[in-house]
């Protein structure tokens, strides 16, 4: 079954985890390609962390099988662990130690050659921009800095797959942005990244493919675009016009190939399935030619949140 040459970083085949009578993860089946930045999206309690814990060999599945990095999860745990790195939800490192000391410790436990550890420590700390703080007690770091150190620690032994469990939770907006950028950067070097989050926006921004989970079940899987299309969501063009009438609205609708047009006072909302690249030009051109002044011009994308609600509501309806 094991297949290190597999094009998939992760293959889950119906893995389930029960705690007594409570089912945390229910029959999860999916595949993650090598080199993907893959997201698990869902509210708290959806089973994301349990899934990650299973895939990182920290918990055994009660049912099902999985291959991680081509190795069987249950039978070849040690090999799996040698190929994966983890950025857990909590800091999980020693605040009394400096970054260098923390990485030294992990290096020892991974039986890595000391010179390699030294070299990698320097490289990684530079990548996560903590090199200037390498001899400072990590307890003094801000949340963002701690997370970056956590990432460096996860990468120390050159894993093929990096699991990041809600890494931006609790960070200030700037740190969040920085961390996301870092994640994408890492992914570009070829590391498969499994990214869990409950922030729909974030998943939308960085994950190439997303698995939406709720109540332990996989609700939907695909790229952001696919999901939005699957859920039937559309773009919205919102205009503030100083005057309009029914004829104008109809024209606008035709012009943009909209599904619907609604208005409320000065605000006009056009729902468009596909956003054409020249739609802005066309609209402004038309309005200008017809002497309509435009106050606000907003184009909003469909959100995953909407997708999520749709997807879970659908489930309930069914």
């Amino acid at each position: 079954m094991a297949n290190p040459q597999s094009p998939y970083a992760i293959e889950c085949m119906g893995i389930t985890r029960k705690f007594g009578s409570f089912t945390a993860v229910d029959n999860l089946t999916l595949r993650v390609k090598k080199g993907e930045l893959f997201g698990f999206l869902g509210p708290n309690g959806a089973g994301k962390t349990t899934t990650i814990n299973m895939l990182t060999t920290l918990i055994r599945p009660t049912e099902g099988k999985a291959l991680v990095a081509g190795f069987d999860l249950a039978e070849q745990g040690a090999l799996v662990r040698s190929r994966i790195g983890v950025v857990p939800q909590s800091f999980a490192l020693f605040e009394e130690l400096t970054p260098i000391e923390n990485l030294w410790y992990l290096g020892e436990l991974y039986e890595m050659d000391r010179q390699t550890v030294a070299k990698r420590t320097e490289e990684l700390l530079k990548i996560v921009t903590l090199y200037d703080k390498k001899d400072v007690q990590s307890g003094t770091f801000s949340g963002g800095m701690k997370q970056r150190l956590s990432v460096a620690a996860g990468l120390l032994h050159s894993p093929q797959i990096l699991f990041m469990d809600e890494p931006t939770t609790g960070l200030d907006p700037q740190s969040r942005i920085a961390l996301r950028e870092l994640t994408q950067q890492l992914n570009q070097t070829g590391i498969t990244v499994i990214y869990t989050t409950h922030d729909m926006d974030e998943a939308d921004k960085i994950c190439q493919r997303i698995a939406i989970m709720d109540h332990g079940k996989l609700k939907a899987l695909g790229t952001s675009k696919e999901l939005k299309e699957y859920a039937g969501h559309s773009h919205k063009i919102i205009l503030e016009l100083d005057h309009h009438d029914g004829k104008l609205l109809e024209e606008l609708k035709k012009l943009t190939d909209a599904i619907s047009v609604t208005s409320e006072g000065k605000m006009v909302e056009l729902r468009v399935k596909k956003l054409r690249h020249d739609v802005v030009h066309k609209l402004t051109d038309y309005l200008y030619r017809h002497d309509v002044e435009v106050g606000e011009f907003n184009i909003s994308e469909p959100t995953l949140e909407e997708v999520f609600i749709t997807v879970t509501k659908k489930e309930l309806r069914d």
Partner: peptide, 12 residues
Amino acid sequence: DGSLTRVFLTPT
């Protein structure tokens, strides 16, 4: 605090 988790991931 989770530091033991990291240890569990190593071949120790």
